[in-house]
């Protein structure tokens, strides 16, 4: 694949991730505090499988920076919460890639890592360790959303042609 083509494709994937994020935030309300579907992670999973770790980081960084810029909260509190979520979830994808795990498992772990990252950031920012009581709820919901996004990613990977 030529470098130009790859750059264009990564830009496209990044754009898709951002749009999914914005649309999900606009139309699907969180079930409880901070529990979202995290559909944008599908793009990270697909990029990881089709290209590799570096490209996954690229797409995620695009999602983080441009997505928050578009929402108008660059460097605000939600930005850092989002950043720690995406950072931890990317780290976990790196780990599962090394372990050669299946896409579904990677998805579940990265969803978990994302929620944990967000929770840790909220605890740090607001000096309120009591929020940790949400851990069991986050655990279960991340597991479920991870299964959902992972399943969608698997289906996408079966059909996509670059």
């Amino acid at each position: 694949m030529s470098k130009t083509r790859k750059t264009a494709l990564l830009g496209l994937l990044g754009a898709i991730a951002i749009v999914i994020n914005l649309v999900e935030a606009a139309f699907i309300p969180p079930l409880q505090f901070g529990i979202r579907l995290g559909l944008a992670n599908i793009v990270a999973l697909v990029t990881l499988q089709l290209f590799g770790v570096k490209e996954m980081w690229t797409v995620n960084l695009l999602r983080l920076s441009l997505g928050n810029l578009l929402k108008g909260i660059l460097f605000g509190a939600p930005f850092w919460i989002s950043a720690s979520g995406i950072f931890l979830s990317s780290l976990s994808l790196l780990l599962t890639r090394r372990l050669k795990s299946s896409v579904l498992f990677s998805s579940i772990l990265s969803a978990l890592a994302h929620s944990l990252g967000q929770l840790l950031c909220v605890i740090l920012l607001y000096a309120q360790p009591g929020i940790a009581i949400l851990l069991p709820t986050l655990l279960v919901s991340s597991l479920l959303t991870g299964i959902l996004t992972g399943s969608i990613a698997v289906q996408v990977l079966r059909r996509i042609r670059l």
């Binding site: 978990l112 851990l135 069991p136 655990l139 279960v140 597991l143």
Partner: peptide
Amino acid sequence: VFILFLLGIGGLFAF
């Protein structure tokens, strides 16, 4: 995954 799930549900009941 199953163990994590049990931990989550268990934690919910414990709390």
